[in-house]
Design a protein around this nucleic acid. Structure first.
Length: 314
RNA sequence: GCCGACGUAGCUCAGUUGGUAGAGCAACGGACUGAAAAUCCGUGUGUCACCUGUUCGAUUCAGGUCGUCGGCA
């Protein structure tokens, strides 16, 4: 590689390809990597798990076309991984990719993972305290969420004000942070954001709602043919039936079918399709407010053509 | 063919003693700072089958038409 290319590569942007589930991000990222001599970083909160491939639509080796991928199979399904851990790891991968003079292409649909990776969380160490968390869980059981929200109102009135009474996850998290660090959650949010050190170009893959839903429905049926139920059985056999990661579209419904809560495979597929549509909607809500995203209409075009459009827009 | 019931939101249904209507599910929208495929919040989107009549006013009452279901033939 010439030094001119080296130089231009150091100022080359990191590509971030987003879009709702089933929008075709994975294939477009591979096409971009092929065109740019790049490598792909997945930003997906479920593809990080080993043994969870079919329902997470983790691309096969064939689908990866020899492009190196990062972010798959990081931990076992009973590990609770965090967006912060992901961001730290992913920044490392991207630095390495760039140091090798290659293009980094991020593809993913997990809004919080992308935010953590690109914009950063509050600076400072990972604030996490198992013991505090356990105590809070216990007190939530005994005294109810209202009592905890009341305590949060005293310790961090600003965050408490915008937290809804039933939002167990956020109430517990905010209390954990205050108790473990002594700093208010809302104050931490106001501190510097720790943005990624490289230039970033955001692209979103857009489909008409009807077309997206058709893709989702088709993919759910395909997952069944690929062996979705065998994968669910395998995870249960390995002892992960109660793991938090199983609370994911495809696995929950698969388990419900296997233990008789869902009567037929058709019903299971319909539920997977419906829950995937709802997930896609939540993803779109997250992406719509990100004004940096340059949306590319997919229409009937294939991944290579969409990648071309992205490359031409540079 | 006759008799009866029914026809209201995408679906299953409620309701209006005549003043243009509401539940559940679905759908749609939003929030999101280290569990995020998680967690949570908000919103009725309607020729009340169609036509005619009575009435100040009809989704509601009457007659007819069409459709669905059931019974009898």
């Amino acid at each position: 590689m010439s030094s001119a290319q080296q130089t231009s590569n150091t100022s080359n942007p990191v590509f971030v390809i987003v879009g709702p589930t089933a929008s075709g991000k994975t294939d477009v990222a591979v096409e971009l990597a092929l065109a740019l001599n790049g490598e792909v970083v997945s930003a997906d909160s479920r593809q990080i798990y080993r043994f969870m491939d079919i329902a997470t639509a983790t691309p096969s080796l064939a689908e990866r076309h020899n492009i190196p991928h990062y972010g798959f199979d990081l931990v076992d399904p009973d590990v609770v991984y965090s967006a912060g851990q992901f961001a730290t790891a992913a920044r490392g991968w991207i630095d390495e990719i760039r140091a090798r003079g290659k293009a980094a292409i991020v593809a993913g649909g997990s809004g919080l993972y992308l935010q953590a990776l690109i914009d950063g969380f509050f600076s400072g160490d990972d604030i996490k305290d198992e013991q505090v968390r356990c105590e809070l869980e216990e007190r939530a059981e005994r005294f109810g969420l209202d009592a905890l929200l009341a305590e949060l109102t005293e310790l961090d009135p600003e965050y408490a004000a915008k937290t809804l009474p039933a939002d167990r996850q956020r109430i517990l998290r905010a209390l954990e942070v205050v108790k473990a660090s002594g700093v208010r959650f809302s104050e931490l949010h106001q501190r510097s954001r720790d943005e990624a050190p490289w230039p970033v170009r955001w692209f979103g893959i857009e489909h008409d709602r009807e077309a997206l839903y058709e893709r989702i429905n088709r993919r759910a049926r395909m997952m069944l043919d690929l062996g979705l139920l065998a994968e669910v059985r395998d995870l249960i056999d390995r002892g992960y039936g109660d793991a938090y990661s199983m609370k994911s579209v495809g696995y929950e419904e698969g388990m419900a079918y296997l233990n008789g809560e869902i009567d037929s495979i058709d019903e299971m597929v319909e539920r997977i399709q419906q829950n995937t549509r709802r997930y896609a909607k939540r993803q779109l809500t997250w992406f719509r407010r990100n004004e940096r995203i340059h949306w590319v209409q997919a229409g009937n075009r294939n991944a290579e053509q969409i990648a071309d459009t992205i490359l031409m827009s540079l």
